[in-house]
Design a protein around this nucleic acid. Sequence first.
RNA 1: GCCGGUGUAGCUCAGCUGGUAGAGCACAUCAUUCGUAAUGAUGGGGCCGGGGGUUCGAGUCCCUUCACCGGCACCA
Length: 650
Amino acid sequence: MDIAVQFPDGGRKNYPCGVTVAEIAAGISASLRKRAISATVNGQHWDLQWPLSADASVVIHTMKDEPQSLELIRHDLAHIMARAVQEIWPDAKVTIGPVIENGWYYDFDKNEPFSPDDLPKIEQKMREIINMRDSVRTETWPRERAIEHYRSSGEPYKVELIGMIPEDEDVRMYWHGEWQDLCRGPHLQHTGQVPADTFKLMSIAGAYWRGDSRNKMLQRIYGVAFRNREDLKGHLNMLEEARKRDHRKLGSEMKLFHFQEEAPGMAFWHPDGWTVYRQLTDYMRRRQIEHGYVEVNTPQVVDRSLWIASGHWEKYQENMFIVSVDEEHAAEKRINALKPMNCPCHVQIYNFGQKSYRDLPLRMAEFGSCTRYEPSGALHGLMRVRGFVQDDAHIFCEEDQIESETREFIGMLSRVYRDLGFPEFKIKYADRPEVRVGSDETWDRAEQALIDAAEAGGYSYELNSGEGAFYGPKLEFVLTDAIGRDWQCGTLQVDFVLPERLDAVYVGRDGNKHRPVMLHRALLGSFERFIGILLENYAGRLPFWLSPLQIVVATIVSEADEYARDVVETLRKAGLRAEADTRNEKINFKVREHSLSKVPVIFAVGAKELANGTVSIRVLGERGLEVAGLDEAVKRFAAESMPPDLRKGA
RNA sequence: GCCGGUGUAGCUCAGCUGGUAGAGCACAUCAUUCGUAAUGAUGGGGCCGGGGGUUCGAGUCCCUUCACCGGCACCA
């Protein structure tokens, strides 16, 4: 019996049932047979050697088809690497090895962990395997046979993996030469189809079996692979670029902050770093006032009874710094905790005195200094710290105000992100998790309100199914930085639970007591982390208004020293952050040094400037020089130094 | 927290199989007054992350601890 095959060019042809795509390709041309790497059959990515048993649409792929060829190259390299590892260390047990962004990884269970010196050896072995041009073969086995095979060959992880394949499905087995692996496919025709010089093993790492920290830790090797050497080089260059913008490196180079052993995860902010920090908090404070927030400040150290009432003691204790006073000397033996979050304290302020529906919505903001005991392995520069300040607020409102408050919030957030240089952001919407509190009707209303508000603003969102907080759904705001990385910063969470637990009430129009809804929200997340993101986004070249040192007045001859100091004085009076550089150095030296330290503007002053009352202006990253009268220059940069919300026309 | 790696001058790093610490930059002093990305000379600077051990002798070997880095887990 024949089957009909539909080609992408509209052509149609009949073939005997059981024909493989390899045979179809061979029938079209010998060169296509040779160049073919895989096929998309009825929308699914297949091996060439897989037989067709029914009518199908077939697209034959060659190395020119990017997603398919990259997937195959990386997937085959995962197998080739696993084979190389097992050839070098026969005791290593294979587990899983998926394709990931830019490459692949493979996890092994091996008694002796890999060392970095092993990577070149493995790479070498992989090239040997590629050069063998071993054919790739696949078969479908009944699961019992496969299980038996892996039991007898001492591969317990494969046995466990088969257990995860649905009962009614057979198991696909692949061979790269003699080496065998359980795999869904597809794969290339032979190992020689993988380019031998476009991959690189990058790193070794520990990883828990099946991603669960209760399981054994396996040894993982990461690799990257591309279709050609240029792409690999480009990728490695990109990594190098990313390293250059690492905020930890920039932070010490620019003398913004440092960390030290005695206070892991807690930043020491230096004068310049703190200037940036203050510019940002000042800006946020003005925006918040503009958007109808009141600002509060609450205690750092709070007795555990409040954390018990809020639920943190039970749910969050292992992340809290618990503080108990010295038993011998203390008159009262309390157990306190440093606050990891501000919400319970904000409810205390809300609860002070009576609230009426007329007070709602009440938008209560705090630049809340929080301390969390983060696991040591999670710490990462400013991005993950133990002490940080959130741009936090809680909006106490009635249920029917959720939508308008959400819309108002997203409006503020998009304005702030734009001001800070992130015009693009995505929204993720996380709906009800399996384990939750509150009635389904309440959830229906809360979810609908969030969606309506997002849509009313014309924002599209991505569903993050079942990822909501246990007390309510949330929106997550993800911005994209200059080199395409995503950072989740903003969040808006609907909370019905905390008002209940901490007994927040208001008197409604009907004269009865009601529960307010609480919206937890942040735009930047934490100032520490956001400054880290800013530094990486701008590669240290912060916008003028955020720059710690905005203008250096550098002298060319010492006769101009006095004039330089006068210029600095004038700049400072105009609100600019300026320093004079009257050191006994050449102007070349000064320009180089200040440029490297990313000062946005250099005013050079020499004999001419002194005589004419002018400055020679050099803007970082620009070629030309410009000479201007001092008054004009001060006016220009004073205007440029205005934060986005204070600019004329803003 | 877990796996692996790293820790030497302010910074970047060298220091072979154990024999008593070195370079460049930075810093200080002096000379130089110079026109937009490195002027020259001279000089000072180290508890080799902390603790313990082996040894006649430890930056080097062993144990332990802390921090950092790459991941995993966590978190958002």
